[in-house]
Design a protein around this nucleic acid. Structure first.
Lengths: 151, 151, 151, 151
DNA sequence: TTTT
DNA sequence: TTTT
């Protein structure tokens, strides 16, 4: 028996992904993602931000480490998972995470470059000249996670 | 600025909704929802259940109180919200909830009857005779929440 | 560059899946799916049904052929694809299909039995006695499609 | 009885929205939206584009007319609707559309300006200097559609 | 007909 | 802790 457990988010990374390597060569990447919602209240524009703990595993974590960085705008599909754990004082706590199954980078093409590409900065300039046309998206799924050159 | 924060669940209620009436005549309903996933591991079928805290507000809560009960299968759309609070010992804790925006009852037609309808039991028989055809769904959105007779 | 193209449906099969075997041992299954929506208009309850052309490929088509049948309630995730073709008179026509990526059976447990299982009918009775508890779901993704015993 | 009929898209507008005013002061806006997907085949990067007919009604159409333009990147939630009609030669044809229920602008803040705002061009320069930080999103739902100043 |  |  099974049901449906699906989360869809579009938001900005609050930090660079934190990457850990577990036994058996398994990579895990995690980072906070902000989704903001704004609405009018008493004539004032209120913005409310929700923070999500995103976790990515294996090949997806590797791609995330390469291409996702603080401030980037990303579309994420995944599922909810709540873990319980004990903090240092031995108190039981719960943490709800979004285990990502695939993601799509949103934003400008220059945002898709890896962090260490020297061409990136000049490309950045190129982008800023081109205006709205330099928006684009790059998708990464669990299957594509092993690609060397995902776009 | 705003992003996207969307959750889609299909699962069974773990308990009847707990209904509270706040100041200003605001109704809140909350209940646990189980989404189960099964997969093969080492030749064995493993079933893993994830529990979600569902919260419904206002008109949607009223409809939930009427039609959602322990064991029912339901489709829910909503958004994630993480609240922090202090427990009795003064320790900071976090709770992540799914704030529902609409839901659709899934399952047999007889499941859609309110709890006190006398016709329900005979209807139940009718359903059990009709086979697969008597499956159906009943949808409730924030707009329709004020309907007296939602199906 | 890529975007997001995602469809989520819960509805009933209008017919048994039609299964074709293409060159290279590729299976394709297709069937119509009805999603109904009801609303009040001028005090009357109106039900509007939308029909979708669902297509499943390869392993997912094989599982569909086994477990999906006319009248079943199913949750489907997929993407939109519009094909153009010429009808017999040579007129250009368009057909929009939902290419399924995974599905989850919803409804009674007895609905999950394969069509030729003799135990199925007695099981059916069993279900009708057990009440709401015998509702359940069975999920099938592209990965799991090769499973012999998916639930 | 009702089911679930939900579409989620992120893509670029192929044209400016076409706005019509029906009887009873009802506005309808429609435009093509491209969602692109790219994958590797035989070592080559293939990009496949899917086109969707988007339709927006009433207040949402008004906001679309103001803020959505050719080339913009947008997140759209809606439902599928297939209409049948006769072309000029009297042949029956089908057209599947995505009736939008809400949308969120993705991309740079400068993209959110209305088309006739004089400040827009200087703002544009500002944006192009700030680099990746000037990405943002602006959401429009059926409820907010009546806002004069949605962000 | 978009975008990269 | 993001973004606007």
């Amino acid at each position: 028996m099974s049901g449906v457990n699906r989360v869809i988010l579009v938001g900005h990374l609050g930090k660079d992904p934190e990457v850990r390597h577990l036994d058996g060569n398994v990579t895990v990447a995690s980072f906070p993602l902000a989704t903001s919602e704004s609405y009018n209240k008493d004539g004032k524009r209120i913005e409310q931000t929700e923070w999500h703990n995103i976790v990515m595993w294996r090949g997806l974590a590797d791609v995330a480490a390469k291409y996702l960085h603080k401030g980037k705008l990303v579309y994420i599909e995944g599922k909810l998972r709540t873990r319980s754990f004990e903090d240092k004082e031995g108190h039981k706590k719960y943490s709800t995470e979004v285990v990502a199954e695939n993601f799509t980078l949103l934003g400008r093409k220059s945002d898709f470059e890896g962090p260490t590409t020297p061409a990136s900065s000049s490309n950045n300039n190129e982008v800023s000249e081109e205006g709205p046309k330099d928006l684009g998206t790059g998708k990464f799924g669990l299957d594509e996670a092993e690609n060397d050159l995902p776009f």
